[in-house]
């Protein structure tokens, strides 16, 4: 039996209209419309496009959750095995739409998703981790090349064949690390690599060292005596008993705790949930990680305006950078809304 595929396209390729129809609400068409016809043909009977979703780019970008939910419902209704979107070429909003729909459906439905766009389309950087993106030309003239490449990769994914490197398979590197078993143990691979490096011969590192994000420094606080300061920590300080069950390692959440009226963290009221360092000292006196006692003194002495009544805490032990980034953004937003002027972030 052929695999069943849903194809997401925009209003232009769906024949609804151009820019003036970019607010077109998503509609589901049975069978193939626009580029879905070419895709259907390229799948050569091994898979078939069972439905085409046509949606205006502006509508999709402005209503990402709603559109993703509709696509998810359609996937279920049609018992689809995969989702394809685009190609979006160099259309920025279409690229965003294809990326967001593919990433959301991959996560929600656990089915393979494939899209295609011009490598410099902003959708690539945003969504490459969440889906497979075939590099396409910057305009619809590249349709003839993109569609067969999308079909080939899609069929491999549907057959659950092990993928080679992105270069070999012809998709844009997702930057996602996948475990595999090599022929040799790591120790032998290390010595093999050392011999190549010593001989000045080419070798391939198994991991390229990361490059981290940078942010522009914010201006300093001019009126400290009037400023509200918040405490945030990756050292895992939580109320005794760890009420939110923050994990000792690879945390899956952060906690928000009220310290109104708390002047000192003691061994009977606070502890650390962090499993990556010797907990003895933080459990004896959590101020060693989260300096509430000193900030209360400074507040009393009017050296600062006040200590924010909530602190935020997670465990930075093996926790994914992507999670930390997301929580950082959330915490930052909350602190901004609470009119906090500056943050002391402590790490262990």
């Amino acid at each position: 039996m052929a695999y069943r595929v849903i194809h997401y396209i925009n209003q232009f390729f769906g024949g609804v209209g151009g820019e003036e129809m970019a607010d077109h609400k998503p509609e589901v068409r049975v069978g193939q419309a626009g580029p879905a016809m070419a895709l259907h043909a390229a799948l050569k009977g091994e898979a078939e496009v069972v439905a085409t979703i046509v949606c205006g780019d502006n509508y999709c970008v402005a209503n990402q959750k709603e559109v993703a939910a509709l696509v998810a419902t359609t996937v279920k209704k049609y018992k689809a095995d995969a989702l394809v979107a685009g190609p979006a070429f160099n259309a920025g909003r279409y690229g965003m739409a294809c990326g967001t729909v593919c990433a959301a459906i991959g996560e929600a439905c656990g089915i393979p998703t494939v899209t295609a766009m011009f490598p410099e389309n902003p959708g690539v950087e945003l969504y490459k981790a969440g889906t497979y993106i075939i590099p396409a030309a910057d305009s619809a003239r590249g349709m003839g090349q993109a569609i067969p490449a999308m079909a080939a990769l899609l069929l491999k994914l549907l057959r659950k064949e092990a993928l080679q490197s992105p270069e070999a398979e012809g998709y844009i590197e997702r930057g996602v690390r996948v475990n595999m078993f090599y022929e040799k143990p790591g120790a032998e691979r290390a010595v093999d690599m050392l011999l190549l490096k010593l001989a000045g011969k080419p070798f391939t590192t198994e991991y390229k060292m990361p490059v981290f994000d940078r942010v522009t420094p914010r201006p300093g606080i001019t009126n400290m005596a009037g400023a509200t300061i918040a405490l945030v920590t990756s050292g895992g300080i939580v109320p005794k008993g760890n009420p939110d069950h923050i994990a000792a390692s690879s945390a899956r959440s952060y906690g928000e705790y009220d310290i109104a009226g708390v002047n000192d963290l003691t061994d009977t009221t606070y502890q650390t949930a962090h499993g990556g360092y010797d907990q003895t000292f933080a459990n004896q006196d959590a101020d060693r990680v989260l300096p509430v006692d000193v900030l209360r003194d400074l507040e009393r002495e009017k050296k600062i305006g006040k200590l924010h009544h909530l602190f935020y805490s997670t465990v930075g032990n093996g926790t994914a950078v992507a999670s930390a980034k997301k929580w950082g953004e959330e915490i930052g937003q909350k602190l901004k809304e609470a009119n906090v002027q500056a943050v002391i972030l402590t790490s262990t």
Binding site: M224, I229, G235, Y277, D278, Q279, T280, F281, A282, Q284, D285, D287, R288, V289, L290, P291, D293, V294, L295, D297, L298, K303, I304, I344, T346, S347, T348
Partner: peptide, 27 residues
């Protein structure tokens, strides 16, 4: 790492003084 803002070998008063110094530096 286990006590960024403390030092268990100091007396509680000395330790708090150390912590205060660090927090003042942070401000």
């Amino acid at each position: 790492i286990p006590y960024p803002l403390g030092n268990p070998t100091l007396s509680p008063a000395e330790e708090k003084k150390l912590r205060r110094g660090l927090v003042e530096k942070a401000l």
